[in-house]
Design a protein around this nucleic acid. Structure first.
Length: 784
RNA sequence: GGACCCUUAGCUCAGCUGGUUAGAGCGUACGAUUCACAUUCGUAAGGUCGCUGGUUCGAUUCCAGCAGGGUCCACCA
């Protein structure tokens, strides 16, 4: 009987493979998923939930290494808190990513020879939706592969009807409170994407350009043509074509050179117009010639000067980047580059061009497509977020929200301080349509806004167009039957969509159903927001503001910003460079656990790290070490008769139960290590936690305790069961400590231990096992 | 123009609130290994902790300045 058992167990041990097979990781994932442990509703404790709404990757593409890096940190926090007994919700999702997806899918269509404009909005939307749903499948597989313990039953897409409803409610509320309004301002226009953009959607890029010095001759006293004296004022500009829209020349009032010119008229070459010379304190005497050509329609600073001096506005560049009908006939329809050359040529021919310098300067480009931004005046929807930003700033300054790294707190605070109205409308098809209707027409509404005090009747008289309504705006998702004010039935829907960040800024509560919904009541506010530094302003900032607005609560108390992963040569990974490393390649070569372990040590907050294959080999070796040490320990039990095995199992349980109070030297040492690890996780120092884990497991447990146990077993064979029990208990404890970082290998060890009947009183799954030590640091300490 | 970060061994980086011989991984050199693991083990070499001042009994750690690298913000036409 005893012999048969021995043989049975021996053959069982031989089944344990010699090297850890990371390709079998997904077997463990299936185990977790089937258990229902990802869903916090199944948690049995009454503790406060731990919640993270995971930043949704763009639905239009596969994940890159940066995404799986973020997921690794998110999952570690989730698993740790779940083991601490908190019902844990990691809520996954995908983002429709408005402008970017529209650009990507437009290109996809173009490659197939399909023109988006011919296809039409509805069909485009339908196909783009399918495209995103299809692409999301791939991302979802990658999310599982990295081990993300997310609640898939709650997965969301930003365009889901329920989320849309919540977002619309926010809009209606802000509209009613006049925090959202439609207005005519100078905005950034990407003529390539054909839409207005918020400041944050643009970036500065150094490019070579020209600095043209242009003479504006003094007009004679009658306001007519050139003064015979030949006097002139020279302006310098990088954008000569915009001179066609100039309505003044501004000089600093203190500038002696131009003192006499203030109030006089100068001739604007090529246009037949004359414009005044004005004095404005914002003009910098040291730049260029000290005389600034003022183009209110196409420069933000000029727009402001224009408002101050009530200057006329001449729109010469259209939303499509072509010269408008307000430009002299010759230039109409040209794009800005063509027009620039034509203007320079004509200025030269007329003797107005003094000189042209080649310079390097910063230009605004579209954050998504890289094309030059045009500043134009147009009617857009704006959110006045000044008050919200003030509240957000206060919360930040009061340390109600902590950012890792802390240095970003001041950066974000400064951003809140200098906030400007946020342009939330985009002239795109892909996104949430702004839910308003115009009585009569949008044109009527905008005309009435531009002409305060006027009526629809005035509109008809002035423009010669039919008003067809009273020109009010009617909020609502569905077509209203008639105008509530004038009962008119001619209602024009708004075509613009929301800025993507208006919807993703509501992610922490929109995904939970919004205020009042059961999930919201249970799981809001969330705890930690984890993402990369590059979307701090886009995303975290908006979440704080809109969270405060809609819920009167901060949506989370901590922002953890993981570092960037660069290509091996230290440059940014990018598709165009072709130096990106697909996550799959890393998973296959090293296994998910090894990839995760590398992230924790190298992609620290505020740090950019090149991908290092040697390091991944190192972490893979560590994973294998975990496996082999466990394999050895388990093998020691293989030849035990059943009776001894039961004895062993009981003693292991005893060690585990007494873990917090034991005075056994080895256990005390492990407990201290566990406390250090706990403290590091609680203070978001994942690198130190993993260092501690590795140092202890490899160089203490393996190199010392296992080796010493080998000795003891030889010297005192009678105490064999005791020694083995201690060793196995120590192993099991460490599986718990390592699990948040390397979930797959530790779960497999756990399962193998269980299949040997060695963890009879412990949880079936390691992922729901109890964390072995409490947090010992004080709350105060953690906040510092 | 403003702000932030980085500069520590050949490489990539740790080093929390200042304190005995400054650490890790990888790499290098030499050696071990019929033992759970060659995805192992041992030993060793290798650093004026960017530079210059300051605070201190004592600074890689705090402060100031400088140099180099990186990032972000910004309406220099």
């Amino acid at each position: 009987m005893q012999k048969r058992d021995t043989e049975k167990n021996k053959s069982k041990t031989e089944e344990i493979p010699k090297a850890y097979d990371s390709n079998a990781e997904m077997e463990m994932y299936e185990l977790w998923e089937q258990s229902g442990a990802f869903n916090p509703d199944n948690a049995k404790t009454g503790q406060k939930p731990f919640v993270m709404t995971l930043p949704p990757p763009n639905a239009n593409d596969k994940l890159h290494v940066g995404h799986v890096c973020g997921y690794s940190f998110e999952d570690t926090m989730g698993r740790y808190n779940r083991m601490k007994g908190r019902p844990t919700l990691l809520l996954p999702g995908k983002d429709h990513a408005g402008i970017q997806t529209e650009a990507v899918f437009t290109r996809v269509l173009r490659e197939k020879g399909i023109d988006k404009w011919k296809m039409g909005r509805e069909e485009f939307y339908r196909q783009c939706y399918d495209y995103c749903i299809e692409n999301s499948k791939h991302a979802r597989a990658q999310e599982r592969r990295i081990g993300l313990s997310a609640d898939w039953s709650r997965e969301k897409f930003t365009l889901d009807p329920k989320l849309t409803e919540v977002i619309y409610e926010t809009f209606y509320k802000m509209l009613e409170e006049k925090l959202i309004y439609r207005g005519k301002y100078i905005v950034n226009q990407c003529v390539y994407c054909r839409t207005a953009l918020a400041n944050v959607d643009t970036e500065h890029k150094e490019k070579s350009g020209i600095f043209a010095y242009i003479r504006y001759p003094l007009a004679d006293k009658s306001g007519g043509r050139t003064d015979k004296s030949g006097k002139h004022v020279t302006v310098a500009t990088t954008r000569p074509e915009t001179m066609l829209g100039d309505t003044a020349v501004a000089v600093n009032p203190k500038d002696k050179r131009y003192k006499d010119l203030i109030g006089k008229q100068v001739e604007l070459p090529l246009t037949g117009r004359t414009i005044p010379v004005i004095a404005d304190r914002e003009v910098d005497e040291t730049v260029g010639t000290g005389a600034l050509k003022v183009t209110p329609a196409h420069s933000a600073i000029d727009f402001k000067i224009g408002l101050r001096h009530k200057l006329a506005v001449v729109n010469v560049i259209g939303a499509d980047g072509k010269m408008t009908d307000e430009a002299p006939e010759k230039y109409r329809g040209m794009n800005v580059i063509e027009c620039r050359e034509a203007v320079l040529e004509d200025l030269k021919a007329g003797g107005y061009l003094e000189k042209v310098e080649e310079i390097m300067h910063e230009v605004l480009v579209c954050e998504r497509c890289g094309h030059d931004i045009e500043q134009i005046i147009s009617n857009q929807w704006f959110a006045d977020v000044k008050d919200l930003a003030g509240r957000a700033k206060k919360a930040l300054d009061d340390k109600k929200i902590r950012i890792y790294p802390h240095s970003q707190e001041r950066v974000l605070s400064g951003w809140f301080k200098n906030i400007e109205p946020w342009c939330i409308s985009r002239q795109l098809w892909w996104g949430h349509r702004i839910p308003v209707w115009y009585c009569g027409s949008k044109a009527l509404y905008d005309w009435l806004q531009d002409n305060p005090g006027k009526t629809a009747k005035d509109y008809e008289e002035v423009t010669g167009k039919k008003a067809n309504g009273c020109g009010i705006v009617i909020p609502g998702a569905n077509t209203p039957k008639k105008c509530p004010k004038c009962a008119g039935a001619r209602l024009e829907p708004e075509q613009d969509v929301f800025d993507t960040w208006f919807s993703s800024g509501q992610w922490p509560f929109s995904t939970l159903g919004g205020p009042g919904a059961p999930d919201y009541e249970t799981y809001y506010p969330t705890d930690v927001m984890e993402n990369a530094r590059d979307i701090l302003f886009f995303w975290d900032a908006r979440e704080i503001m809109l969270g405060l607005y809609r819920t009167n609560t901060l949506p989370f108390h901590t922002i953890y910003l993981h570092g960037w992963i660069l290509a091996a040569d230290g440059t940014k990974m990018s598709k165009s460079r072709g130096n990106g490393v697909p996550p799959e390649e890393l998973f296959e070569k090293y296994g998910s656990d090894a990839v995760r372990l590398w992230f924790y040590t190298d992609t620290l907050p505020g740090q950019n790290t090149p991908i290092r294959e040697e390091k991944l080999k190192g972490t893979r070796n560590f994973v294998n070490k975990i496996w082999n040490a466990s394999r050895y320990v388990m093998m020691q039990t293989a030849d035990l008769p059943e009776a001894d095995r039961a004895d062993l199992s009981g003693k292991i349980a005893h060690y585990l139960e007494k873990f917090e109070s034991s005075d056994d030297d080895w256990i005390v040492e492990l407990r201290n290590t566990a406390q250090t690890i706990t403290k590091h996780i609680d203070t978001f120092r994942f690198n130190l936690a993993v260092e501690e884990v590795r140092e202890y497991f490899w160089h203490v447990f393996c190199d010392k305790r296992i080796e010493e146990t080998k000795q003891l077993l030889q010297e005192k064979p009678a105490d064999r069961i005791d020694y083995l029990a201690r060793l196995i208990a120590m192993l099991a404890m460490q599986m718990k400590l390592i699990h948040p970082f390397a979930p797959f290998v530790t779960e497999r060890v756990w399962q193998t231990l269980r299949s040997y009947g060695l963890l009879v009183h412990e949880d079936e799954l390691l992922m729901t096992a109890r964390w072995p030590v409490p947090s010992t640091y004080s709350k105060k300490e953690a906040k510092q």
